[in-house]
Simulated assay, not measured.
Amino acid sequence: MFLKSIDASSHVKNAAYLCEAIEEVIDEVGEENVVQVVTDNAASYVAAGKLLMERHPKIFWSPCAAHCLDLMLEDIGKLGWVKECVERAKNICKFIYNHALVLSIMRQYTGERELARPGITRFASNFLTLKSLLKSKASLRRMFVGEEWTSSSYATTTAGMDVVDCIFDEPGFWIPCAEIVQVTEPLVVLLRVVDGEKPAMGYIYEGMDRAKEAIRSIYAGVEDKYRPIWDIIDRRWHNQLHRPIHAAAYYLNPSFRFRVDFKADEEVLSGLYSIVQRMVTDTTATLLEMDAFNNASGAIFASQLCKEGRTKLQPGRKF
């Protein structure tokens, strides 16, 4: 739910001020009811988050996952071959949507399917538009050889001929277009998860691993192909997004914890233990509870109802 907004136009939005503003809300809600504070990645917010964790030992700060994923897509969009393809796609859409007659002709051929697709975030829109163009590829090619187009005044304009050249440029446009859509789809899917209404904390860590593995699979494991994309993802993940709370949430998510391919490596366990140490006072009781959880034992974790709910309910959701 929405709690409040603050008019900060007359203040210098440095770390100290932002921390105090957030603390006011924490006091209103009750510190015992706050686990995590999420902000964007601006330097002042990062500094405010660190200051907040120093003052409140049981509260965690994390950067916005959707913002970080959007920045990953932005960085991928800066790669030379990706940028060129996206610019050509934008020119196609701009030309069609800026001319009512051309737009009308397009809709006749695509069955009212639109090309310009609003995304979850700014940069996701670019890749969703590429996906829409791919779906309409055959229709667009029929359109630009059809009588409605060839008899129009736009067919002889420089801009119109440039668009036609692009539409029929298989190796220069459509092949890289398909590759970009494949490569970015795993990140866009994860972006939908973290930007949705359901709590996503328990899925970010695993989601990033899955996205990277999907990208490696697209390139059949050829490192020279997938490594530039991985480097972009890792740079944002390790320097901005990843926090111990993500690893702990992965470990404590029953839908992952009880799968046969579950992996609790050093990073995951380190994240889990640092979170537990920070949050709980009775470590003995907590260790016993964790043991029951790991072994699916006791009255709750061993019950059939609990086992069936591992993949059907959100982590932390009660029957």
Rank of each mutant, 00 (worst) to 15 (best):
N126Q: 09
K212I: 00
I6W: 12
A124E: 10
M201V: 02
E20S: 15
R235P: 02
M143Q: 04
L3C: 14
Y45H: 10
N239I: 05
W81V: 06
M208D: 00
S9K: 04
T157L: 11
E84Q: 15
A159H: 14
A249P: 09
E114G: 04
N126W: 01
W149R: 00
T129I: 04
R310Q: 09
V181A: 02
I229G: 00
D162R: 14
F168K: 08
W149D: 00
G196A: 12
A249H: 02
K50A: 06
F293T: 01
P63G: 02
G221F: 07
G111F: 06
K13S: 12
E54A: 09
S44F: 01
R243H: 00
G172W: 12
L51N: 11
Y250K: 01
A214M: 09
A89I: 05
A247Y: 02
T311Y: 10
L18S: 04
K263Y: 07
G30S: 12
N294K: 11
A100I: 09
S153V: 10
V46I: 13
S5R: 13
I76V: 05
S10D: 13
V181E: 07
G80P: 10
R243N: 02
T286K: 15
H246Q: 03
A65G: 01
K94F: 11
L305Y: 07
T286S: 13
